[in-house]
Computed example of a mutant assay.
Amino acid sequence: MSNTAYQVKQATYDLFKTKRSYFTEEHEMFRTSLRKFIDKEVAPHLEEWEENQYTPREVFTKMGEQGFLATQVDPAYGGLGLDFGFNLILGEEAHRIGGGIVGASLHSTITVPYLETYGTEEQKKKYLPKFVSGEIITGVAMTEPGTGSDLASIRTSAVRDGEHYVINGQKTFISNGLNAELFFVVVKTDPNAVPAHKGVSVIIVERGTPGFSNGRKLKKLGQRSWDTTELIFEDVRVPVSNLLGEEGKGFRILMDKLAQERISAANSAYIVAEEMLKSTIAYVKQRTAFGKPISSFQNTQFEIAEMATEMSLARSFLNDIISRHMKGEKIDTEVSMAKAFVPEMVKRIAARCLQLHGGYGFMEEYPIARRYRDIPVLAIGGGTTEIMKTIIAKNLGM
C-alpha cells in the first residue's frame, strides 16, 4: 500500500474548487497546520499501522498537544471555543489519508459533545481539559452483539445499588476500543420501561474500573488501523455521579448529537470520493494501452465525467446543509438524505475507480484497493442507509 493516497498531490484540496462560505482564513490555517502534522507523523507510518491493525496511542497525545482535538470546547475548560467547521476539517483530513486517526474525529466531533451538553459542572471540570489535551481519548459503547440500529433493545444493564450503578453486559464494534480511556456506555436502567427507549441511560465508565475489560480486537474488512474491539462489563461498579444527564434520557441524549455525526460522516465520505477520483485521473493519464493513454478512451472520459457530476451535485447539497447546521437550523430530513445518498454514491465511485485501474486496482500498492475496503462502513455507522430512508419517509408523512 502506498501513502500516495494522501499525497496525490494536492495543489488544491477541492477537486471542483467549490467555494465553501463557512470556511474562513482561520479554518484554512488550521487545515494547513493539520496537514503538516499528518505528513510528518502519520503518512510515513500508515502502511505499518495498517499491517499491525493499530494506530499507536501517542499519536493522539501529539494531536492534543498541538491543538487539533476538541477545538470546540469552551476555553473555561481548556478548549479554544471554535466552531463546528474546525471539527469538520479534522474529519476531512483524517479521512483524506484514512486509517486510525479517524478516531480523533470521532472523539472530537461525536463523543466529546455529549459531555459538553449534558455533563454536570463537576464532570466537565474533571474531563474536558483532558479531552482537549489528548490525555483522555473517548469512545461510545452503544452497539451490542444482538442489537444494531435497535437501540431500545440493548441488554447491558445498570442496576442502582446505593450510590453506585452495577453494570453487566457486552458491547461490540466499539471504535477507539483499545486507545480510549473513557467510554459513554449505553445501558438499560429500567428494563420494564414502556416504551422501551425510556429505560435507556448513558453512564461514564473509565478504563481500569474493576470488571471492565476488552474482549476481542476485531479484524475488519477495512479501516484496519482504526482500533475496534468488544467491551465486557462484569459487575462494574461506578458512582451514581457518573450518570450523563438524567436517568432514562439516554436515547434523547444520543439522538441529539446524531445530526452532527451524520453530517460529518457524509462529508467525510465525500472527501474519500474526491481522493479516489483524483488518484484515478492521475492514473489513467499515465497508464497506456494500445499505444495511448487510457484517459483518451471515450469510455474512460464518460466514467470520469459521470462520477465528477455526481460528486459536484453532492458537494453542493453538503455545502447547503453544513451551512444551515452551523446556523443552528433543524434539518433532520436533509441530514438523513445526505447520510443515505453520499456514502452509497461513494461506494459506487470506489468500484468504478477500481475498475479503471484494471488489474492494478486489485494490488495493495495502489491506494484504491484500501479505499475500496475502507468506504463501505460509512454507509453503516451512525445509522444505516436503510434507517436513513425510514427517517426520510417518516418525515414526509408516510
Rank of each mutant, 00 (worst) to 15 (best):
3 N>E: 03
3 N>S: 06
8 V>M: 01
18 T>P: 01
20 R>I: 02
26 E>N: 12
27 H>R: 03
28 E>G: 02
28 E>K: 08
37 F>A: 04
47 E>M: 01
55 T>A: 06
68 F>G: 11
70 A>F: 11
75 P>F: 14
78 G>Q: 05
81 G>L: 13
82 L>W: 14
87 N>P: 01
89 I>H: 06
93 E>G: 03
107 H>D: 13
108 S>H: 12
110 I>P: 00
135 E>I: 01
146 G>C: 04
153 S>I: 00
155 R>A: 13
174 I>K: 04
178 L>A: 08
181 E>N: 09
190 D>R: 05
192 N>D: 14
194 V>K: 13
195 P>I: 08
209 T>K: 13
211 G>A: 12
213 S>C: 07
213 S>K: 15
216 R>W: 09
218 L>T: 05
223 Q>D: 15
232 I>L: 15
255 M>E: 14
257 K>L: 15
258 L>W: 03
258 L>Q: 08
259 A>Y: 03
263 I>N: 08
264 S>P: 00
266 A>I: 03
274 E>D: 14
278 K>L: 15
280 T>L: 13
280 T>A: 14
286 Q>G: 05
302 F>I: 10
303 E>A: 11
304 I>Q: 07
312 S>I: 07
336 S>M: 04
343 P>V: 01
349 I>W: 06
356 L>K: 02
357 H>Y: 15
364 E>S: 13
371 R>P: 00
375 I>F: 03
375 I>Y: 02
383 G>M: 02
390 T>Q: 11
